[in-house]
Design a protein around this nucleic acid. Structure first.
Lengths: 113, 113
DNA sequence: TGTCAATATAGACATATGTCGAAGTCTCTG
DNA sequence: CAGAGACTTCGACATATGTCTATATTGACA
């Protein structure tokens, strides 16, 4: 699977020049994956966790939602390329793809040149 | 209506510390508004347009969609606080709220401190 | 091998979303 | 005042999304 960071980083910031239709189609899914309160918190929990990774077991407890629902949200973030997934024994650890977040932030937030 | 820039700017970056449920509920709608290819391009078209603003008549031509559909997307961006709206005579001009984009980008893209 | 614990997948359901065509609202201008 | 042009609002529709319960899978361990 491609690194979404590359996809996004290739684009000029939103305010610099109009995004092409193709670029927009590639970037939108990343934003869509982030555009949910639960997934935003999941992403933040993982990204800010010690060691840059977090176990699903820890994440479940942070929410008042069923375990399959959390699993579903993690899958959405993983499929978008925002979280890496690693199974170690019985536990599954997710790790934030910092590069994807960085380039996405730059795309949205950089002032016009 | 509140400036979403303030709402977002108050939060630490995603990677610094876990977003609270309340913060996530406030930020998610902004991302949701951006998380559509058409709206991403609209936002980019307006933000990068000469003078920082664009007339709806110009925006319509950039898409293969009906005019009410474009109007709908502009309303979503406006309601989220990402676009300002001003009617001058018969024409309506939209202007990007740069501050909102800046703080949103910082929230997503800032490396952990 | 059998059982338990940690996740994931499947299927169902209510609600949200993107799109359109039709109709409404302003505002200029003759 | 009437008509035309620029948008917006309304109502309908198909599809996507978030959530749940029930079930499957996987790995450790007795």
């Amino acid at each position: 699977m491609l690194d979404p960071a590359d996809t996004v980083a290739c684009c000029s910031p939103l305010s610099a020049e109009p995004l092409s239709a193709e670029q927009a189609e590639q970037v939108a899914p990343l934003l869509k994956a982030l555009a949910d309160p639960v997934r935003l918190r999941l992403m933040s929990l993982v990204a800010s966790h010690t060691g840059g990774e977090a176990c699903v077991c820890d994440l479940n407890d942070a929410f008042d939602l069923s375990q399959p629902t959390i699993s579903h949200h993690l899958k959405v973030l993983h499929d978008a390329g925002l979280l890496d997934r690693e199974k170690r024994g019985v536990w599954v650890y997710y790790r934030a793809r910092t590069s994807a977040l960085l380039s996405l932030g730059a795309l949205i937030g950089c002032p016009p040149s």
